[in-house]
Amino acid sequence: MKYQKELKDNILFIRLEGDLIAGPDTQKMIADADAEGDGKVTLCAIDLSNARFMDSSGMGVLVSLLTKFRNRGGELVLIKPSEHIRKLLIVTKLNAIFTIAENDSFAAQFLKESIY
């Protein structure tokens, strides 16, 4: 898995590519997200449009990140998950705890409104 991160308007955008599975890349991504802005960034959007596959450990990564941002008083949104990942979110009922946005603009709007 590869990822890129970008801080835009106090929102951390993480763009994933490849397979979201356990490994050093996922642990580094969690650490990077945790350290962003010295832990003061509270809003995050994870772009899953180029993620091909996710297993149970990948779901754990998403839940872990969601928990980290909510514990800071913030929120996390998933952007355009692939069809495979959407189905997994539905089957595991995680779609009930994650907000899913179709693009960056909707994600940013939702996140900004969530802090008020």
Rank of each mutant, 00 (worst) to 15 (best):
D25A: 07
A107R: 01
E83S: 10
L88F: 12
I85E: 01
I90D: 07
K28F: 03
T26P: 00
R70T: 08
L16N: 03
C44V: 06
G18P: 02
R72G: 01
L78F: 07
K40F: 02
D38H: 14
L65Y: 14
G18R: 07
N95K: 10
D47G: 03
G74V: 00
A51L: 08
C44I: 05
E17K: 13
A31W: 02
A45K: 01
R70Q: 14
D38F: 12
N50F: 12
K80C: 15
S105G: 11
R86V: 08
I100T: 12
K93D: 10
F69N: 07
I100M: 11
F53R: 09
I90V: 13
M59H: 05
A45W: 01
K93V: 14
I100K: 07
S82Q: 06
T67I: 06
V91W: 05
L88T: 12
D34L: 08
N95M: 06
E17G: 10
L78S: 03
T42D: 02
L65F: 13
M59V: 07
D32A: 04
A51I: 03
G39W: 00
K87Y: 10
L76F: 02
D55Y: 09
G18H: 06
I21F: 03
A51T: 15
D104V: 13
G73L: 02
A35V: 04
M59I: 11
L94E: 07
I90K: 11
K40W: 01
R72T: 04
A22D: 08
M29A: 11
A33V: 06
I30C: 06
T26C: 08
K80N: 15
D47P: 04
E83M: 07
G73V: 01
V77P: 00
I100S: 09
E17P: 00
M29W: 10
A96Q: 12
G60N: 11
K40S: 09
G18M: 10
D55Q: 09
P81G: 02
I30K: 14
F98N: 06
K87E: 12
E17I: 04
I30G: 05
K87C: 03
N50Y: 08
K40T: 08
I21W: 01
N103M: 14
T92F: 08
L66W: 15
T92Q: 05
K93P: 09
S82V: 13
S64W: 02
G18A: 09
G39V: 00
L88V: 13
I100N: 06
G60V: 08
P81V: 01
S56H: 05
K68Q: 12
V41M: 11
I46D: 00
G58V: 04
I21L: 12
L88M: 15
A96E: 11
K87N: 10
T42K: 15
D47V: 07
F69S: 03
D104A: 15
D32E: 11
A51V: 14
N71A: 08
R52F: 04
E17N: 12
F53A: 05
I30D: 06
C44D: 03
D32W: 05
L66S: 14
L66Q: 15
V61M: 07
I90E: 11
A35K: 14
F53M: 11
I21G: 05
I79W: 03
